[in-house]
């Protein structure tokens, strides 16, 4: 089964690769004339439309624009620095409120799982977004293996702690290392929530969270923790890295919500990466456009309070 997050997107709506590859030339030609005319007549800008098609972001952009603070605060530098990360072999520990705690070898785990495509919009809390074709499997399939107890109400994820390869884990006090994230159990078992092991049909690049990362498409990107080594099922809501560092700025839920501004910037719109100069920003959607699937999870919650 291929999960499509937006049933309305059909194959023919995807931009022709040929046109796409020439987009920069086209835009540059456009830009020159547009700039000339725009100074006089602002009406030439059609800034009101929201492009809700899932047009895949060029892989090169996705591979060179990552927030991976363990390596660098620079989104491009982490591409190179992350290559030092040893990822083979890779083991994942699953423990806590479960019937069968396990220590799994990733390679063996992948043999049991059916890897599928998931094309998701990825919205960063920094107000940019990209559309990435991930390959992975539903987190719920992994959780089923360990048989969660009824007392398991939250899931906590932990990134690898390896200061030799991840230098900022020793020197940077920006976050409490290792990086941690968490979900409520109903969020973790939601069919949209996946563990990704690949993107663009290739194995996951190290800077993008290899070998195993979480993807929760209706939440801000920092929830989608990279290089996972530990998954714990817990009774109580866990502390998570960004929430601990700045609870008023980064909530535990971190659902994409244009109506709730970050204390320092608006979340109302986002820059779609790969879009050209003079393209209007995209209007951010509640739950990043996945409201139809996930809004029910929060029906009794005040989304302004539970950020």
């Amino acid at each position: 089964m291929l999960i499509k997050s937006k049933p309305s997107i059909s194959e023919h709506e995807i931009t022709d690769p040929l046109i796409f590859s020439q987009r920069r030339q086209i835009i540059k030609a456009f830009a020159a004339t547009t700039l000339a005319s725009a100074t006089g007549i602002g009406k030439v800008f059609a800034g009101e439309t929201n492009d809700n098609r899932l047009t895949t972001t060029p892989a090169e952009v996705v591979k060179n624009y990552t927030n991976y603070y363990e390596f660098s605060f620079n989104k491009q530098d982490s591409t190179k620095l992350a290559q030092a990360l040893p990822i083979d072999p890779w083991n994942i520990e699953i423990s806590g409120e479960v019937e069968r705690p396990m220590r799994l070898n990733l390679e063996q785990l992948l043999k049991q799982q059916t890897i599928q495509d998931y094309v998701y919009r990825f919205r960063c809390v920094e107000a940019w977004s990209m559309v990435v074709p991930w390959q992975g499997f539903q987190l719920v399939n992994l959780l089923k293996l360990v048989k969660p107890l009824s007392s398991a109400r939250y899931v906590k994820f932990t990134t690898l702690f390896n200061p030799q390869a991840m230098p900022n884990q020793l020197t940077s006090s920006s976050l409490d290392w290792p990086y941690t994230e968490g979900l409520r159990i109903d969020e973790a078992t939601h069919p949209l929530t996946i563990l990704a092991v690949g993107m663009y049909g290739e194995s996951l690049p190290k800077q993008n969270g290899a070998p195993l990362r979480l993807i929760v498409p209706w939440k801000y990107g920092f929830k989608s923790i990279k290089a996972i080594v530990k998954i714990e099922l817990l009774k109580d809501q866990p502390n998570t890295a960004w929430n601990q560092a700045a609870p008023n700025e980064y909530g535990f839920y971190a659902n994409v919500n244009p109506a709730v501004a970050h204390p320092r910037w608006s979340q109302h719109s986002e820059r779609v990466l790969g879009s050209s100069f003079f393209t209007a920003r995209r209007e951010t959607e509640l739950f990043n456009g996945y409201g139809e699937q996930v809004a029910d999870l929060y029906r009794d919650m005040d989304l302004r309070r539970f950020i």
Partner: peptide, 17 residues
């Protein structure tokens, strides 16, 4: 960046200190 979308610009201005 904003393609003269004044509505978005206005919201951005209000919400971004």
């Amino acid at each position: 960046d904003n393609s003269l979308n004044w509505r978005l610009i206005w919201i951005d201005l209000l919400e971004s200190p």
